[in-house]
Design a protein around this nucleic acid. Sequence first.
RNA 1: GGGAGCGUAGAACAGUCUGGAGUGUUCGUCGGCCUGUCAAGCCGAAGGUCGCGGGUUCAAAUCCCGUCGUUCCCGCCA
Length: 589
Amino acid sequence: MADKQVIRTHGAGDVSAALIGESVIVAGWVQRRRDHGGVAFLDIRDASGLVQVVADPAEHPEVEEMRMEFCVSVRGTVRSRPEGTVNPDMATGELEVGVEELVVLSRAEALPFLIDDRTEVDEKVRLQHRYLDLRRPRMAANLKARSKATSAIRRTLDDLGFLEVETPTLVNSTPEGARDMLVPSRLRQGEFYALPQSPQLFKQLLMVGGVERYFQIARCYRDEDFRADRQLEFTQLDLEGSFWGREDVLDTIETVLKSVVADVRGIDLSDDFPRITWQEAMDRYGSDKPDIRFGMEITDVSDVVAESEFGVFSTTISDGGTVRGINAGPVEWARSRADALTERARELGAGGLVWMVVEADGTLRSPVAKFLSESEQAGLKSRLEATPGDVLLIVADRWKTVVGVLGALRLELGRPTGHEELAFLWVIDFPLFEEDDSGKITFSHHPFTAPASLEEMATDPDKALSKAYDAVLNGVELGSGSVRIHDPEIQKEVFDILGIAADVAERRFGWFLQALRYGTPPHAGFAFGIDRLVMILQNESSIREVIPFPKTQTGSDPMTGAPTWVEADLLSELGLALGPAALERMEPS
RNA sequence: GGGAGCGUAGAACAGUCUGGAGUGUUCGUCGGCCUGUCAAGCCGAAGGUCGCGGGUUCAAAUCCCGUCGUUCCCGCCA
């Protein structure tokens, strides 16, 4: 091995009792060096696992210079460890490799952080040296899980006769939905491509194109602010089928999700995923992505307090609002907790928050108790199934605010930590349209979603339902889908209700409407976020943990420095110039 | 766009509330000792723009203002 040629006969984790007495060559990174002077131990780690090698420094002086994360190759003989030195915490703990030859393949500088899961390191430092972070067992396991997930998806859909088709990532910008990521065109200065927010229209065109069963593991881009579960770019399983209705989609997606869970978690989910309508989800959980792993459901108490002396309650109801509450159970209650939750409720749009503690003798301790009659107090307790020690939280406002606030408080107070349990859920029967805060009607899913009933859409658009559905896992929205509109006339009607003028619709989506005019099959589909799915299956709380090279919350990559300024030449070649705000930032005065 | 937290040695922290010399802990690094460890152990050493800028003060890691970075949340995310 004088020429340092790398030869590895066995993975470190593959060293087994069957190899005792045999000569092997393992290669990998030095996890730890324990040098006792007369004898030295190295733990060698590679992708397969960890094995201990033992060297006599007198015979192999190279071992003295080995440091953590050196990349090394070891030729030696597999043997049982001496009695009393077995390490039960190690998969190969009964064995070791007695060193015959030791070669440093590559040295390592002093590390910015230790390569193990015990060490908590600031995320920025981890991202600056992501290649080292990926060596940690946690990240290695997450990458592996992600690969298992995508291969389960491909295998399952291949078995079901799906075609994997790639759609373009340089597309036209559409002003609907999220902000587009833009790419300037050099050949057509002043014009821009957009990176796709989803392959939505292209996959529908594939249906027109006779593909019938399409899927794609598609990178998608949305230029909106970051969250723990949102990045600028993310990966979706995108899927569509012709001659399909809702049940075909739900069946297929359920099959895919179950195969992913089986491969990543080793669990067989035999039961069908439960279903809940959007209305019920909002009423009971105050969310269109309910976490059903725990109760603490929202209860309507409007009738109990409709005549109450407490004006906030009675006035809200007479004004058409509602009063609802949750029983938070035996929460440790203190003034600071009450203040924090009240502030949170206000942040979410409520005017305030009424709290009540059920005392041991059954009386209610609350700032508003004195305004509530005995029968009102009794009614609240029985409606919220209160027992001594419980904390009741009540909000009075318009319906949307009440359920939204209580839904958020419910999560804060009762949500299980981690994702040991998996609670999948279908949310169905979404409203077709919704009003934004300015009162403007907008689609609640996307404008290509089929209405549940044409008649309802025409006569009562406020109440009209759509054929859209969401998949939810542990309170996280995995993805959504719908039966699509395949009739260009209905598509135009929807645009009309949305207030998109015919000529505008024609200009923006004319190419798509035209495609629908050539015998479009009824079709339906779905897309779910692979990052989020793997995040939950791996019990992580951020998708950054399952993305090999993610961005920070301000959209930067601490390792490469992206995004960066570019040469003026390049800008001018593209016909671009920086505006005053950019120049200001470039050279702060 | 807004709110909150964090920023001290290569890493993780304590010190900040209540101003008094860069004080300290663990890990890593460097040197020495050590023949059965496995987060080895023991001895010794090096390593600091307390994110940056300004202000208050006799004196600032500590108080105030601004700014940058980072995390979480609200808005936003068809």
